[in-house]
Design a binder for these strands. Structure first.
Lengths: 229, 229
DNA sequence: GCCTGCGCTTGACATCGATCAAGGGGGAAA
DNA sequence: TTTCCCCCTTGATCGATGTCAAGCGCAGGC
């Protein structure tokens, strides 16, 4: 790894509190790799060989069953995936692919388990990372079980706008079909849902979504802190 | 805590590899409590005060939104809940109540975080516990997003029968409405789904479900290791 | 500038699932 | 034993969602 990459990685929340010696051992065989869009990094059913951290770009966690595919999560900087399989040394439940060009830290799996055992600050960081992913999936499950597709979309718009600084304009970073899959609907129904939201203060064209009346949108969406974070 | 309870708890997978001194400190203010059926133990939105482990009985993790309620998970011995909120010291996303009479270990939350810091074997056990819960929720999400209600029920029957030793007879331990909520459907649709499964080798009456033709049931259910475990 | 491909949109239809309403049946209490 | 209550079942209906098919429109290549 190049010295500048080494410093970049060292500064990540996952690693910044580690002891220097432990960090050096952990990174001995690590690489900070560039990947183009739409590259599959992990295949479900395989045993983990590496631990991955998204440093730049976006990665989609997805799984397939009986001819269908669905998105479980979208990982953005800085977060690891799929921590739980690496720690348990159990097969991946899901696959992963880049949604955009991405820079990803790849560390041999055994080194991660060793570092968990030898470095307490790292163990704490890992458990926090895992707990956050757990919360994220529980929220997705609540969202899917308690809301219709259109309400999930409405809340996704509110949440994404808030994360991007309340500009009331969202530019989709990836294809709409991926958003549909992530929200648990078909691309056709995403289109129809977006059209329906025009009655609740949302206008959209192409990959741009504009919130024209955030009160109306909130009144319809009924956001819930426990689901939407 | 009574000496016999102390020994019971000490033998649990979560604690059995801890150092004795750390275990004694952890248990200083812990209690092994009996609860009747239908007692709420945790309310969503609150900050965790205690860490809970189900030693006997069953506990339902559920959440509510906009007048609806859904089951997120059902916890059986021996498993903890809801680990992630305790570790992060963040508000609970979901509530918990006993489904049956239950014996539950209750430990002050701060003691758990201290033990995580001071005892490495405990930290490992906690992270494995958390990783297993993560897998469980990911599986529920895949199940909900990729299957219809009737298929979820069919696979639940296969999985539950396998867990209980392939007797081809399942006795429901709790109300059908809870099963429905856990499978993400209404009680009405659970009834209709069960009726529909009579064409695929399942007979049921009251709380008893009998698999009469497991080949037919599997052919319909299309079980998937990655979803059903 | 035109053609082409692919993602998106729209419509029609079928299926899935929720809701409301009514009725049956088993267990608990008097 | 009888009554009552609550859960479960069943039917009718409506809304939500998936599927199939056709058409639109923008971007990239010629």
């Amino acid at each position: 790894m190049r010295p500048s990459d080494f410093e970049t990685v060292r500064a990540l929340p996952l690693f910044c509190r580690m002891e220097k010696d432990n960090f050096d051992v952990l990174m001995a065989d690590a690489e900070l790799q560039h990947f183009p869009q739409h590259v599959t990094l992990i295949r479900e059913g395989r045993l983990p060989e590496s631990f991955h951290v998204v440093v730049e770009g976006a990665v989609e966690i997805f799984c397939t069953h009986d001819g269908h595919e669905t998105t479980i999560d979208i990982i953005r900087p800085t977060a690891a995936f799929i921590v739980s399989s690496v720690l348990r040394n159990a097969v991946y439940l899901s696959s992963a692919r880049t949604l955009t060009a991405a820079r990803i830290l790849v560390v041999p799996a055994q080194r991660i388990r060793d570092a968990f055992d030898s470095d307490h600050a790292f163990a704490r960081a890992i458990v926090i990372e895992l707990a956050e992913h757990y919360h994220s999936v529980v929220r997705s499950l609540m969202n899917k079980k308690l809301r219709t597709g259109t309400k999930r979309l409405a809340n996704w718009i509110l949440k994404t706008d808030a994360m991007q600084g309340h500009h009331r304009t969202i530019e989709l970073a990836f294809e709409k079909r991926t958003l549909a899959s992530s929200l648990g609907m078909t691309p056709e129904n995403l289109s129809r849902s977006l059209a329906r939201l025009s009655k609740h203060g949302v206008r959209s064209s192409g990959r741009e979504i504009v919130i024209e009346d955030s009160f109306a949108l909130e009144r319809f969406a009924k956001p819930n802190m426990l689901i939407d974070g």
